[in-house]
Write a protein that binds this DNA or RNA. Structure first.
Lengths: 193, 193, 193, 193
DNA sequence: CATGAATGAGTATTCATTCAT
DNA sequence: CATGAATGAATACTCATTCAT
C-alpha cells in the first residue's frame, strides 16, 4: 500500500519463502501449516487468503520455481553455437541458478513427480523435459553425442548434476566453491560421442 | 512357528515389506501406521511388538536395506583388478541390486539424510560412503581417475546412476531393459582421467 | 445520506435483510458473518459498525420482526367484538403477516427460545404471549372457549397455524393460495366450547 | 464383550445419546464434536470409529429416531376401527412416544428438512408422511373428516400436537401432566367434518 | 503373542472479530 | 464512515500409540 518497492503482497511472498524452506527441510507431509505461518510471521488463517489449501500452496511453489528455473536456464538458449558450447552454457546456467537459489533447486528435485502435484504443475515439468530432449536429439543428429536414448543421456547429466549439488549440501560446503567447471567437463565426457 | 524355513517372524517380515512399499509410494509422513498394518495383514498393535515406533521402523528398514545393498555391492570387492574392471563390477552390482530390489533402491535414495534417521542409520550410510571414497582415492593415486575431490566424482557417478534409474521409473520402463552397459560406459568416461 | 426516504442507514437495512435470509436458510451457527456481508454487499467490517456481534445482530432481527408481527397482529385489536370475530381477525392478521413476510415468520418460529436470544428479546416474546393469553382467558370467562389451560389452547392454535405454513413451505406452495379460511374454521372448532 | 446386556456397542449408544441431547439443546452447527465426545465420555476420535462424519452422525440419529417413532406410532395400526378411534389411538401413541422420548420428538421436529439430512433420511420421513396421508384420505372418503387438502389437516394436527408439546417444554411442565385427552379432543374437533 | 478398539494430541481449515488504511 | 486484509481461537477430523481382551 505504501512503499513503492512492495509490488506484490509482502505476505504472499513471505508465505512462499517460508513454505519453500520448510518443505525442503521436512517434506510436504512433515510440515504443518501453522509452522509455515510462524516462519512467515503471519497468522495461520492468512495463508488461506492466498492459497486455497496446503496442496495449492505446494503446487504454486513448484510452478513458480520451475518457471524461474526455466527463465534462467532455457530462455534465449542459442541454437546455432557448437554443441560443446551449448552444453557448457546449459550446465553453467543450471549452476548459476542453483547457487542463487539452492533451496529452489532442492525443492524441485524433491517434488519431481510427487503425487500431490496437479496436472498443471506436471505440464510445466513436461515442457521443460521436452526442451532438453530436443537439444540432445539435435546434437546426436550431428554425431556429437553418444547414440543412446536421449532420456538416458539426460538422466545421466541431470542426475550427475544433482549428485554434485547433493554432495555439497551434505557436507555443508558452499555451492559457490564447487568445482563446477570440472563437473561440467566430467559430464560432457560422459555423453559426448 | 513350526516350519524350518520360518527363521525370523513372518509378521516382522510382512511389516517391513509393507512399510517399504508405502514409504516409497507416499513418503514417511504420508503413510499412516494402520495402513502399514493393513497391507501387512496384521493388527495395528502388532507393529509395536516388533518396532518401538514408526521412526524405529523406518530406521530399521533403512539399515536393513542399506546393508543388503552393501552385501550385494561391496562384499568381496576385489582390490587387485584393474580400475576399469572395478568400476564395471561396482556399477553392474548396483544395477543388479536395483533390478532385484527397485523399491529398496528408491527407498534408500529418498531417505538419504531424512531428519528422522537416527545416528546408527547415519553411521551405516557413512561407512558405505567411506568405502567408495577409499576405492576412488586409490584409483586416483594410480592416475586412472580425474584428480578431483573424490566426493565430486562419487556424486557424479551415484547421481548419474540414480538419474538413469529415475528415468526408467518415470516412464514405467522395466529396469532390466535399461542399457546398463552404455550407462556404465558413459559414467566411466565421466570420471576416468 | 441525502435522500429524505433514507431514514435509517441503507446498509443497516441491507445487513438485516441478508442476515434474515441466511439465518432462515442455514441457521444461526450455519451462517458465516462474511456471507452475510457478501449478500448485503457491504464489507465484513461494516456489520460491526451497526451491530456489536453476530449475537447482537440475530437479537436485533428477532426483536424487530417480533415487533413487526405485533404491529400487524395485535395493534388496535378490538376487545368488544364477538369472540368468533376476534379469533377470525387474529388468524387472518397472522396469515396476512405470514404472506407478506414469510421469512420473518419462519425466522421467528426457528428462533423461538434459541439460547443466543438475550433477555430483552425474550421479554418481547413474553409480552406478546401474555396478550394472547388475556384474550383467551376473557373468552373463556364468557364460556365461548373450552375450559382448558389457556396455554394449551394457544399451543394448539399457534402450532396448528405453524403446521399449515410449514405444509405450504415444504411443498413450495405459495402461501397466498393456502385455504386460510378453512384452516381458520378448523382451529376455531378446535378451541371453541 | 462380557455383560450379556451389552448387546451392541456401549460407546456407539453413548455417542448417539449425547449427540441427540446436544443437537436438541444447541442445534447441529452449534454443537462441537468434542463436546459430544465429552458428554458421551469417550475420546473425540472414537466418534469417528462409529460414524464417518458429524453429518453421518446426525443422519444416523434422525433415521433411528424416526423409525422408533414409526414403530411406536404406526406399527399394527388398525384400519378397521372407527375413525374416531383411529385418531385417538394415533394421538395417544404420539403422546406416549413423546412422553417416553421427549428429546427424540423435539429432535425430529427441529431437523425436519434440515439441509444436512441425506436422501435416505428424507426417504424415511416421506414414507411416514405418506402413511398418515393415506389414513386421512380414507377417513375423508367415509365423510368423517373435513373435505380439505389432506396436507392441510395433517399440518393442523401435527402442528397442534407440536404446539402442545412446546407449550409444556417452554414452561418446564412435565409432559405426563399435560391434558392429552383434552388436546386430543380439540384436534379431533378441528378436523372432523 | 496378537489384536483392534480407544484415545487425545495434532492437523488442515474456517470464521467472528479487529483495525490500519 | 467503510473496508477487507489479517488474525488466532475454534472446528472437524486423523493418526501414532496403548492396552484390555
Amino acid at each position: 500500500m505504501s512503499a513503492l518497492a512492495e509490488k506484490k503482497s509482502d505476505k504472499r511472498e513471505a508465505i512462499l519463502d517460508a513454505a519453500l524452506d520448510l518443505f525442503v527441510e521436512r517434506g510436504f507431509h512433515g510440515t504443518a501449516v501453522p509452522e509455515i505461518a510462524d516462519r512467515a510471521a503471519v497468522g495461520a488463517g492468512t495463508i488461506y487468503r492466498y492459497f486455497e489449501s496446503k496442496e495449492a500452496l505446494v503446487n504454486a511453489i513448484y510452478r513458480m520455481e520451475k518457471m524461474r528455473f526455466g527463465h534462467v536456464v532455457v530462455d534465449d538458449f542459442p541454437t546455432t553455437i557448437a554443441t560443446r558450447e551449448q552444453f557448457r552454457l546449459l550446465f553453467m546456467r543450471m549452476a548459476t541458478f542453483t547457487i542463487a537459489h539452492p533451496k529452489s533447486f532442492v525443492f524441485l528435485e524433491l517434488h519431481h513427480h510427487a503425487p500431490y502435484l496437479d496436472a498443471e504443475s506436471r505440464a510445466v515439468e513436461e515442457r521443460m523435459t521436452m526442451l532438453f530432449t530436443a537439444v540432445i536429439v539435435q546434437a546426436q543428429a550431428r554425431g556429437e553425442l553418444k547414440a543412446a536414448d536421449p532420456r538416458l543421456l539426460m538422466g545421466i547429466v541431470m542426475g550427475g548434476f544433482v549428485g554434485v549439488v547433493r554432495g555439497c549440501v551434505e557436507i555443508d560446503q558452499s555451492l559457490e566453491s564447487a568445482d563446477w567447471k570440472l563437473a561440467e567437463q566430467c559430464l560432457w565426457e560422459a555423453i559426448r560421442s
